[in-house]
């Protein structure tokens, strides 16, 4: 499963759609390598990358938390 496929599985979740962070059309067009400009999407990408690249959970956690401090 690719990073894009995993990301899509999160973005296609009905709950994500309900939260109204991003339109459905935009969700469909989104690419893992491109910035979405939506913080929630970006932290999901950080978590996916960390997992695929076998990064330690603590490092991914720190990356997410500091990303949201911006």
């Amino acid at each position: 499963m690719t990073k894009d496929e995993i990301l899509k599985s999160y973005l296609n979740d009905p709950l994500f759609q309900e939260m109204d962070y991003m339109s459905k059309e935009k969700c469909e067009k989104i690419q893992f390598g491109e910035s979405s400009g939506v913080k929630l999407v970006e932290i999901i990408k950080l978590a996916i990358s960390g997992n695929i690249d076998r990064e330690s959970e603590q490092i991914t956690l720190r990356k997410i938390l500091s990303y949201l401090n911006k």
């Binding site: 599985s9 979740d13 709950l15 994500f16 939260m19 913080k39 932290i43 999901i44 911006k70």
Partner: peptide
Amino acid sequence: EYLTAKKQILRDFEAIAINTRERV
């Protein structure tokens, strides 16, 4: 404001992570 937003985003992340896992 960033902290309140951070808290909200991470709570949403948690909810989506749980829901997506179950759905998948």
